[in-house]
Amino acid sequence: MRTDRATAAAAVLVTAAAALLLTGCGSGGGDPADKAAERPTAAVTVSAGAPATTPAGASAGPPGTAPATEAPGSAADAPKVPGPQLTPPGGGTFTKQQKTYLSGRVPRGTDPVAILEGGQEICDRLTRTSQVDKAAAASAIITGDISMSGASAAVSALCPDQQPVIDAARHGFGDGTFTVAATSAPGTSVTPGSYRAPHPSPSCNWRVTGANGATLTSGGAARLTVPAAARGITSSGCYAWLAAGGT
Rank of each mutant, 00 (worst) to 15 (best):
P72W: 08
D124T: 15
V132W: 07
Q85E: 15
S149L: 06
G92N: 09
G26V: 08
R207F: 00
P62Y: 11
G232V: 00
A52S: 10
G29W: 08
T225D: 12
I122Y: 09
A244T: 11
D77I: 05
T127P: 04
T23G: 11
R125P: 04
A114V: 05
S184L: 06
S201W: 03
G232Y: 01
A52T: 06
P89I: 08
S218V: 00
T215N: 06
T177H: 06
S194I: 00
L158Q: 04
P63H: 14
T87D: 03
G232D: 05
Q85S: 13
A78V: 02
A17I: 06
A36Y: 06
R39A: 15
A36G: 10
P192N: 11
T247E: 09
A50V: 07
G83F: 09
F173R: 03
T23W: 10
P63D: 15
A60P: 00
S130W: 12
L126F: 12
R196W: 02
L126P: 08
L22R: 15
L102R: 07
A18P: 13
A19L: 07
T143Y: 07
T100G: 09
L158F: 12
G29C: 13
V113I: 15
G29T: 09
P200R: 09
C159F: 10
G61M: 12
I141A: 12
T93E: 14
